[in-house]
């Protein structure tokens, strides 16, 4: 299969699965891909060349200016925004941005990647549900085993290590494994 010889970078920008925006140093939109229409209802050509001051309400603009100041200081932490779409509806989005610096290190623009935060929240909720289940089940065994031990119940029938302490330890190790897997997944997610 042949890739186009020219315009590959533009193709990547246009076909990215997230909304990509390039703002110049004056916060004027120089590029927005087609996801702008999906997310906020605007066609990219409606916003190209326009300053954010024209497109956003004063409170959101103030938030953007604070975000820009953080980016210039090197803080690339994502920020959550509440934006108005073309129909006046509310959109909750998360923006990850980075300054585009010249050879002298000055920010000549900003590249922003924007995702629908509700979709992100749904994905996080699903992960949390799984983790919640995977943590609570072994934790239930740890607590039940230790309480039965304290209450003097006889551990006959426990086939693993013949003791409540052994069951508690085994399930504490399961908990440790779940936490390790979770932390590893988080690490991979953060790249």
């Amino acid at each position: 299969m042949k890739l186009p010889r020219r315009g590959l970078a533009r193709r990547v920008g246009e076909r990215s699965p997230a909304l990509l925006v390039y703002l110049d140093a004056d916060l004027r939109v120089r590029f927005a891909n087609r996801h702008l229409r999906n997310l906020l209802g605007h066609h990219p050509h409606e916003v190209r060349g326009r300053a954010l001051a024209e497109l956003l309400d004063p409170a959101t603009l103030k938030y953007v200016l604070a975000h820009r100041a953080e980016l210039e200081r090197g803080n690339l932490a994502p920020r959550d925004y509440v934006l108005r779409d073309k129909q006046g509806g509310t959109k909750y989005v998360q923006v990850r941005a980075a300054p585009d610096r010249d050879a002298r290190g000055r920010a000549i623009g900003f590249i922003a990647c924007t995702v629908d935060r509700r979709r992100l929240d749904r994905a996080r909720r699903r992960v949390l549900e799984v983790v919640n289940h995977d943590l609570r089940t072994p934790l239930a065994s740890v607590i039940a085993a230790l309480e039965l031990l304290r209450d003097g119940a006889k551990p006959h029938g426990i086939d693993t290590t013949s003791s409540f302490a052994g069951v508690a330890l085994q399930n504490a190790q399961r908990l440790e494994q779940v936490l390790e897997q979770w932390l590893e997944a988080e690490r991979l997610d953060l790249g």
Partner: peptide, 17 residues
């Protein structure tokens, strides 16, 4: 379906209850 909990719940309900 969790084997540990099967045993612990059985011991609790049989011995304490």
């Amino acid at each position: 379906d969790d084997r540990s909990l099967q045993n612990l719940v059985r011991i609790a309900l049989e011995q304490l209850g």
